[in-house]
């Protein structure tokens, strides 16, 4: 897909995010907006997925994903982004976004397989678990000689979970060089700036020390840079080491009053704030 087309998808996805969170008056817009460009680039440009359609015209979802690239969202609280991208990509009706976080919905507060929402392979939200699951899926691909890739997105605050480092240790030991992790390094978490809450210090040095290859993405909100970083990461695969993209983003990117602050990590805009946000985000694909 052309960069401009990816940007257009991103703009619509950002509208979807703020509208979902506004509608249920709950959810996590900050990280969702910050990671939009990356998840759009993955699903609309980078990843090979099963393009077969079912009788209703939606993408056929097979959980095993043999022959497909797989994406795991470990920081599951940015679910409105995940749902928007999956719906816009064709896994389920975009109208279903209106049910986000509401009773009897398949769009649970955090991603879940329990309600059988197509596109979701494992539940996430309790932090620190996604990289382990991604390691298992990458290992399975190695066993089957399936040459596709496994992508895992995590938060930077999430790096404080001990289990992350168990998985960080596991992947190079087992030479999972088909695994690409992406860290949303926005420097913010619920209680404040990460360096004040629990300083991650030099994540790049830490991952190197554990035996990973790294890619720096200095602006994860620039679509050209995002696409280029994925290309670089892929070039580093197949060489015995897992790869991590250290992605600097702005929390709340795209909505001026949400940008660069942890205050919109998990807060919903009111009616007036929604209008201000939507005025900054053009309709490109049509609202749900």
């Amino acid at each position: 897909m052309e960069i401009q087309d990816l940007k257009n998808v991103g703009a619509q996805v950002r509208r979807d995010i703020v509208r979902q969170v506004h509608s249920s008056q709950s959810g996590h817009p900050g990280g969702s907006l910050g990671c939009t460009d990356m998840v759009v680039a993955l699903y609309f440009n980078e990843m090979k997925i099963n393009e077969n359609r079912n009788a209703e015209g939606f993408l056929e979802f097979v959980r095993e994903g043999i022959g497909e690239d797989l994406f795991f969202l470990s920081n599951g609280h940015i679910s409105p982004l995940f749902y928007s991208v999956l719906a816009r990509r064709g896994y389920f009706p975009v109208s279903e976004m209106s049910t986000f976080r509401k009773i009897n919905s398949r769009l649970q507060g955090h991603p879940a397989t329990h309600e059988h929402l197509p596109g979701i392979r494992v539940a996430s939200g309790s932090l620190g678990q996604g990289l382990s699951v991604g390691c298992g899926a990458a290992y399975a691909k190695k066993l089957r000689k399936d040459d596709r890739f496994v992508y895992v997105m995590m938060g930077d605050g999430e790096q404080q979970e001990g289990q992350v480092w168990e998985a960080v240790q596991f992947a190079p030991h087992h030479k999972l060089d088909n695994l690409i992790a992406i860290i949303d390094w926005n420097g913010q978490q619920i209680d404040g700036p990460t360096e004040k809450v629990m300083n991650n210090l030099d994540l790049k040095a830490k991952y190197h020390a554990f035996g990973w290859d790294t890619v720096d993405l200095d602006n994860g909100n620039n679509m050209e840079h995002v696409v280029e970083s994925l290309k670089q990461a892929k070039e580093k695969t197949g060489k015995g080491k897992p790869v991590v993209i250290l992605m600097r983003t702005g929390m709340g990117y795209g909505v001026d009053y949400m940008m660069g602050t942890h205050k919109w990590h998990g807060a919903a805009p009111n009616d007036d704030q929604l209008l201000v946000a939507l005025n900054q985000l053009p309709v490109t694909l049509g609202d749900y």
Binding site: R63, E64, G65, I66, R121, V122, Q129, G130, L131, S132, V133, G134, C135, G136, A137, A138, Y139, A140, K141, R144, Q163, A167, F170
Partner: peptide
């Protein structure tokens, strides 16, 4: 977690 990833892969 690794087990879950293996299981969902079949």
């Amino acid at each position: 977690g690794v087990s879950a990833g293996l299981a969902l892969s079949g």
